[in-house]
Design a protein around this nucleic acid. Structure first.
Lengths: 184, 184
DNA sequence: TTTATTAGGAAACAATCATTCCCTATTGTC
DNA sequence: GACAATAGGGAATGATTGTTTCCTAATAAA
């Protein structure tokens, strides 16, 4: 069932919510219609489950990417580089469920909006934490406002997913090189 | 007809493409089904026309916001402030057709993808131009890479639309204050 | 072995979708 | 004033949607 949910994640990522029919879902999950409705209340429930799964996986990937850095500053850099990588190529084209949910559903579906907000705020707090670590270890100046900078970096990462979905190329080293000025 | 198209823009902005039915469209445009299909080939044609109209209006708004600045640097600042303003409140909740088109349709619809790309690249070139103006008038250092910085700023602006759609508050002065470090 | 419970599958359901067709005013032309 | 042309409106249509229902096969308990 978890593997079926992973397949649902892929479909929702690349087609979004409304363009994904139950037929698309059953084909991707390799389950019959009845089986899907036995496991989930309705289509939205499948989406919410897929959202949660996607969010958990991405959180872990982002955290482990950041962990590759040896200072707070380097951890921010690796986190941004990881985001560029995920926004590009085949995965970039596939897209991000959080961004998709925000754009397609957040306006009208309070349940989705709550999850999108929670995910964004968690990420933002994580980035602010990295910045504070950097200030503690001396790799990031004290005068940098951790919260404001984190929120701007959230905009950057979410924006990269939009640009990546449109298949515009992103040069990781150059883009992140510029973004690191925010920690000056 | 132009006023009807403006109303179509609003609906497509807040509901997206697939969640907008012809019924929603006719109700918003105050036109009967037959009239819509007399003016446009199909639903996608309505969307493309709405997209073009929205893009033209937003381009003008962004340009006039930038024009309020007296130096290249100040023009970039005003342009970013304008983006924050449009990403917030009722308009932020309504959303951006370009971001919506990118996230919802760019993966599968080449025609929409081409327009999204064109709009993003036009904006990016405009921002790069502002930066070069600032370098010419001495308000922005020469060592700033105009193209890389413009691309990052595109990510910032597109990301702000995503965050704004999720109804998270954005403090314009603080956010732009941090972003202006990119011109240091 | 028998029975109860569950996971999974396919067909049927009503509702909604985008689209087409045809009718009615209104406008401009001769 | 008569007529052609067109813009707009609304009902009808076929396809597709999400959902439900019922059936089969497999598994666990007794």
């Amino acid at each position: 069932m978890d593997t079926a949910l992973d397949r649902a994640v892929r479909v929702f990522c690349e087609r979004g919510y409304h363009a994904t029919s139950i037929g698309d879902l059953t084909a991707a999950m390799r389950l019959a219609t009845g089986s899907v409705y036995k496991a989930f209340r309705d289509k939205q429930a499948v989406f919410l489950a897929a959202f949660d799964r996607y969010a958990a996986v991405r959180r872990e990937q982002t955290r482990s990417a950041a962990a590759r850095g040896s200072s707070g500053r380097e951890r921010v850099r690796h986190m941004l580089l990881s985001y560029v990588a995920h926004s590009q190529g085949i995965e970039g084209r596939r897209g991000c469920i959080v961004v998709g949910g925000a754009v397609e559903l957040a306006a009208l579906d309070p349940e989705v909006r709550a999850r999108v907000n929670a995910q964004i705020e968690t990420n933002e707090a994580f980035i602010a934490g990295l910045i504070r670590e950097g200030q503690a270890d001396g790799s990031i100046p004290r005068h940098v406002d951790a919260d404001d900078t984190a929120r701007l970096m959230i905009c950057i990462t979410q924006g990269m997913r939009v640009v990546g979905k449109a298949r515009l190329p992103l040069d990781g080293e150059r883009l992140v090189g510029v973004a690191m000025k925010l920690l000056a």
